[in-house]
Design a protein around this nucleic acid. Structure first.
Length: 441
RNA sequence: GCGUCUCUAGCUUAAUGGUAAAGCUCUUCUCUGUGGCAGAAGCGAUACGGGUUCGAUUCCCGUGAGACGCCCCA
């Protein structure tokens, strides 16, 4: 006997080990029912804004050709070089799980000739993206981006401001206050090369004081030196030439207008001439929204910018475009850190309990009938005791219970019980739907 | 990719170099014709592997997982 028990224990252990190997992969998370209210809130806020601003949803596939990202986001960028999930198909194609949406949106725009539907095209999306990075607070390997993009149309700064306004509204809708908009312009293909050269020259003169990373970036993307947090590099930053002084007149005018539009709708911004962003395709306006954190809060919750040259790099025409994305998990992290509760879902459900085997069978039919009438019904029909069934109803916070027993079946009636007051009455079954609808109002 | 810390039931926490205690949760019963309360019972854990030791959950090493920070980003 004892030996048998020991064997059972051994067996249990082995089974557990097998289960343990199937954890969710690193940085991937289950979104549980308890957290659903946050997601519902974010999804509905996003859809409401899309409707209000006239954006249509476009969902490109999760997989794209890896080259799409290599060419646009930049092979040197961390997102592509270090964090992209790349896979080879049986047919020999090299695909990538999208590390961001923007290139896919541009590709879809071109492939489906959306320009023929009118310009600009205002599009939004909401879905998973993947980056093989080390997880930490507000950062996962699979996470959810919510983005708005305005593609084509005139290169008008009003679109830049509109995108920013949408994200400002999104934060407002989620009751997230106390955030900072950081904004900068990184010029166009006319003025950026000139600035880059000046910047390179400046840093070359101080190369010995730079950190290793910056030495590397100096050759490939000198703008990123402005973003470095190494102490010695930070010191050099102070005297580095300021891009805002070096913008060409077109870019200066564009940027000035963006800021004026923002002022028009009372969006407060903070100029940050070190804001560069790690993706190659950006030009002119770039921005980021930071939740001003107490500890336990993620910093950046949304970011984006203009990418006028992206379409060109994948074989399209020069097409002005601006867009941005927010991280849903980060928004939720901020909401949780600040104890912003999403609205509790209205629990307007009824509960159906049975008493006895025959009633159990009939109750199954009643359930189906009620649900066909659009009434949300909970049950615990598998429990035999009426008491235990009502216990479940109580735990779920339900206010109306229906009780069906032998007696009611013969009388073609059903008991409707108010769980808050304890008052109950038997009513004819054919009046049940109307009575429930009346009481739920 | 680099660094720091953590690991006892589903959750929160105890304890000990002698094989683990509790609260909450969950299941059932008291109570298959009436829930909340109460009482009782039950399920259920020292992440894994190795070392030291008569004996390790405790000490040491490794692995794993997680959290957080850096880089970068949403």
């Amino acid at each position: 006997m004892e030996i048998l028990q020991n064997m059972d224990k051994e067996k249990d252990k082995k089974e557990k080990e097998i289960v343990r190997t199937f954890q969710a992969p690193k940085g991937m998370h289950d979104i549980l029912p308890v957290d659903q209210p946050y997601w519902d809130r974010i999804e509905s806020a996003t859809k409401d804004l899309a409707r209000a601003y006239g954006f249509g949803r476009l969902e490109p596939p999760v997989l794209e050709f890896a080259d799409l990202y290599n060419k646009t986001s930049g092979e040197e960028s961390d997102v592509v070089a270090k964090e992209m999930y790349v896979l080879k198909t049986k047919g020999g194609d090299t695909l990538a799980l999208r590390p961001e949406y923007t290139p896919g949106m541009a590709r879809a725009y071109m492939e489906n000739a959306l320009s023929r539907l009118g310009q600009p095209q205002k599009l939004f999306y909401m879905g998973p993206v993947f980056r093989h990075d080390r997880p930490q607070l507000g950062r996962y390997r699979q996470f959810t981006q919510i983005g708005f993009e305005t593609l084509s149309g005139p290169n008008d700064p009003i679109y830049d401001a509109e995108i920013i306004a949408i994200f400002s509204d999104l934060l407002k809708a989620l009751k997230i206050e106390n955030w900072t908009l950081k904004i900068n312009s990184i010029g166009c293909r006319v003025c950026r090369p000139i600035y880059k050269k000046q910047l390179t020259n400046y840093y070359k003169a101080h190369e010995k004081d730079l950190c290793e990373d910056c030495k590397k970036h100096l050759a490939t993307n000198p703008l990123r030196l402005l973003d470095c947090k190494e102490e010695s590099c930070v010191k050099l930053k102070a005297k580095a030439p300021n891009f805002l002084d070096k913008l060409c007149s077109m870019c200066t005018q564009h940027f000035k207008s963006v800021l004026e539009y923002l002022e028009e709708v009372s969006i407060v911004y903070e100029l940050d001439n070190h804001l560069v962003r790690g993706l190659d395709y950006y030009s002119r306006t770039v921005f980021e929204m930071m939740a001003n954190g107490k500890e336990g809060e993620v910093g950046s919750v949304a970011g984006g910018g203009r990418y006028d040259y992206l379409m060109e790099t994948i074989g399209g025409h020069l097409t002005p475009a601006i867009g941005a994305a927010a991280g849903a998990e980060r928004l939720i992290a901020v909401m949780k850190a600040r104890e912003i509760a999403p609205p509790a879902r209205a629990a307007k459900r009824v509960f159906l309990a049975h008493a006895g085997d025959l009633a159990k069978k009939k109750a199954f039919g009643v359930l189906k009938m009620l649900r066909e009438h659009g009434i949300a019904v909970s049950e615990s029909l598998a429990k035999e005791s009426l008491g235990n069934q009502l216990k479940v109803a109580d735990k779920e916070g339900i206010s109306i219970a229906l009780i069906l027993g032998q007696k009611e079946i013969y009388e073609k009636s059903i008991i409707i019980r108010d769980l808050k007051t304890g008052l109950q009455e038997a009513i004819p079954q054919e009046k049940l739907v109307d009575e429930i609808k009346k009481r739920l109002k």
